[in-house]
Design a protein around this nucleic acid. Structure first.
Lengths: 333, 333
DNA sequence: TTGAAAGCGCTAACAT
DNA sequence: ATGTTAGCGCTTTCAA
C-alpha cells in the first residue's frame, strides 16, 4: 500500500534491538536506556518509520478514535457541537469518525453498528429522539456513549444538555412581562423529548405562572427550516398571537421574514424569542432575541466526559447540565 | 473490550467449517455451497458475531475509511461540502474521519500524518492555500488525495472546483452593466490562490472589458466573518464605491448590515454580489445576489472521484470543474 | 467448494 | 533495561 512499508521489525533489525524496545521508545515508555532510545530514534528517523495505527489498534484494543453520530453536519446547530467535540478530541489525541443520520432511526442503528465494528473507543450521539431500538443497541456494547444536546429520559448513558424547560420558561416570562397575552409556541416534532416534554412543559408552566390560559391553538408543530417558518407565518398571525417562542433559529428567521413581508412590525407589533442564538440571529434585522446555548461547550464537555469514561476515571455526574442565558436583542421590546 | 468478543474462529468451530469459509460468507464470496452458507449464517446470527473491522483492515490493508481535512466544520461553506462528501462516502461504504485544521499549516500536516498512520484509504483536503510543506506530505504517500473547493496550481492531486475566475467576471459584468464605475472587491487573504489569483484576475479582466480602470484602493483584504464585514463598511463607503463583489457570504452580510445601519439603501444606492449563495443570502433583507456554487456537489463529486482513485478505476479528468450560476436577487438592481 | 496456514504490524506479558 | 514470544481477528494464497 505505501511505497514499501517500513515496520517496527525493520527498525529493530537496523538498530540491533528487539521489537519490544522499539515499541517502548515509540510509546514513550521510560524503561529504555537513553543511549538505546537515541539509537532507535535515529533509525526511525533514517528509515522514516511510521507506526501503523491499525496494527496497534488490533494489538492494544484501542483505536484512539471515537464515533460521532449527528443528524446533519450542514446544520449550524450541530456543526457547532461537532467543532467543540473535535477540538477536545484532538486535545486528548483522539480522532472522530463523523456520520450523518438525518435523525433516521434505521440509519442511526446502521452507523452505530459500523462504528462498533470499527472498534471506536467511544461514541457521541446527537439525535432528536432516542428510540427503544437505539437504546437497545446502546446496551449491547460496553463502549461508552455520551449524548450531546439530546435528551434520553432513561439516562442510561452520559449526556450534556442545558435545562431546556427552564430556558423556555425564562423566554416565556420575558414575553409575558412585555404584556403579551397570546404567545405562540413554534416547534419541530412534539414527539422529540426536548420539545414535547422539556420545552412544552416549560411553556405551559410559565403561562400558568403568568396567569395566562394554555391554548392548544397557539402551539404550532413544524419543521426546522427557514422555508417552513415563512410558510407558517400566516397561520401564526391568524391565531391572534402577538409573540412567539421558537425552538429553532432557521424557523424563527422564517417567521421573522414572513412577518416583515406581511408588513408586521417587529417587535412593536410582534415579538420573537428564538432558541439557539446562532450567528444568524445577529445578521437579520431586527436581530433576534434568543436563549443562548453554549453549543461549542456542549460538544466540548460531552467529549471531555467521554474521555473520562474511556479512561475509567471517576465521574461525578454523567448527566451534565450546562448554563444558558437569554440574549435580549431587537425582536423583543 | 466488548462483552466477550465472538471471533471468526468461534463461528468456524460452531459451524464445523474453517475460518476461511466463514470469511467467505461474510465477504459475500460466491464460492460457497448454499447449504454451507446457510449453516454459517445461522451460527453468525445465533452467536451475534460482528466482524472486527480493525483486524480486517490489518489483514486486507483496506480500512474503508477516508480522511477529511477541513478548515472549520462550523462554517456553512465547509459543512455543506462535508455533507456531500459523507453522503457519497456512505453510498460507497466508507466512513470519514473528520479533522479541523483552521487552515493552519502545522495542524494540516499533523493531522494528515495521523490520518496516514490510521491507514485511511484516501484523503479529501480542503484548505485555502496548499503550501509546499503540505504538498511534500502529499507526495510522501501513495494514498489518493482530492482537493475540494480548494485550488493547487500544481495540480498534483485530484481536485473539484468551479471556475472562480469566470464566476467573478460574470459578477463584475453584472455590476458594471448596472452602471457602476467604482466596484469594490472584498476578499479574504489575497495569498490564497482562489482569491489572489483566480478571483482577483477575473475582477481585473472584467473591469478592463468594461472599460473601467483598475484601482487598488477598491480592493479590500479582510477576513471571512460577519464582524469584519461590519467593520470594513465605513472604509468601503469612503472609497466611493457604489457596488461590491464579496468573496464570502458572512463578510457580505456584514457589509450589508453595515450599510443599512448607515442608512445606505441597497440596492438603489449600493449593490452587492456575494459568492456562496448559502441560505443566509435568502434570510437577510434585501436578499443577496450571489454566485451560486454547488457546494454539496463539490463535496459529493470530490468523494466520487476519490472512490475511483481508490479503486484504481480509469479517470478521465482528475481536475474537475463544476458549473456555477449567478442568482440574481434583491441586492442588485 | 473447502481447509490449512502464513502473515498483516504491533503490544504485552513474561523472562532474563 | 531488554528480549522472546504469543497473540489481536482477520484475509489470502496455496493445496486439496
Amino acid at each position: 500500500m505505501d511505497k514499501q512499508t517500513i515496520t517496527i521489525y525493520d527498525v529493530a533489525r537496523e538498530a540491533n534491538v528487539s521489537m519490544a524496545t522499539v515499541s517502548r521508545v515509540v510509546n514513550g515508555n521510560q524503561n529504555v536506556k537513553p543511549v538505546t532510545r537515541k539509537k532507535v530514534l535515529e533509525v526511525i528517523e533514517r528509515l522514516d518509520y511510521r507506526p501503523n495505527a491499525v496494527a496497534r489498534g488490533l494489538a492494544s484494543k484501542k483505536t484512539t478514535t471515537v464515533g460521532v453520530i449527528i443528524p446533519d453536519i450542514s446544520n449550524v446547530y450541530f456543526s457547532s457541537l461537532a467543532r467543540g467535540i473535535d477540538d477536545v478530541a484532538t486535545m486528548y489525541k483522539y480522532n472522530i469518525i463523523l456520520a450523518n443520520s438525518d435523525g433516521d432511526d434505521v440509519k442511526e442503528i446502521n452507523v452505530l453498528n459500523t462504528l462498533f465494528a470499527k472498534q471506536v473507543d467511544g461514541v457521541i450521539f446527537m439525535g432528536h429522539r432516542i428510540t427503544d431500538r437505539i437504546r437497545a443497541e446502546f446496551s449491547r456494547s460496553r463502549t461508552p456513549i455520551v449524548l450531546a444536546g439530546s435528551i434520553d429520559p432513561d439516562e442510561q448513558v452520559g449526556s450534556v444538555n442545558i435545562d431546556y424547560k427552564q430556558a423556555t420558561k425564562d423566554a416565556i416570562n420575558l414575553l409575558a412581562k412585555n404584556g403579551n397575552k397570546k404567545i405562540a409556541f413554534l416547534t419541530g416534532a412534539l414527539l422529540d423529548p426536548i420539545n414535547g416534554q422539556a420545552r412544552l412543559q416549560g411553556y405551559r408552566e410559565a403561562l400558568e405562572e403568568n396567569g395566562i390560559e394554555y391554548n392548544e391553538g397557539l402551539v404550532f408543530e413544524s419543521h426546522y427550516s427557514f422555508e417552513e417558518g415563512l410558510k407558517i407565518t400566516e397561520r401564526v398571525k391568524t391565531s391572534g398571537a402577538t409573540a412567539a417562542f421558537v425552538v429553532n433559529d432557521d424557523l424563527a428567521v422564517g417567521l421573522l421574514d414572513g412577518l416583515l413581508d406581511l408588513g408586521v412590525k417587529v417587535p412593536s407589533e410582534f415579538e420573537i424569542v428564538t432558541s439557539n442564538n446562532s450567528q444568524i440571529t445577529n445578521m437579520v434585522r431586527p436581530r433576534l432575541t434568543s436563549v443562548s446555548q453554549p453549543l461549542y461547550d456542549l460538544g466540548a464537555v460531552a467529549m471531555r466526559l467521554l474521555t473520562k469514561m474511556m479512561n475509567h476515571e471517576e465521574i461525578e455526574e454523567k448527566n451534565i447540565i450546562l448554563p444558558f442565558g437569554i440574549d435580549e436583542k431587537d425582536s423583543t421590546k
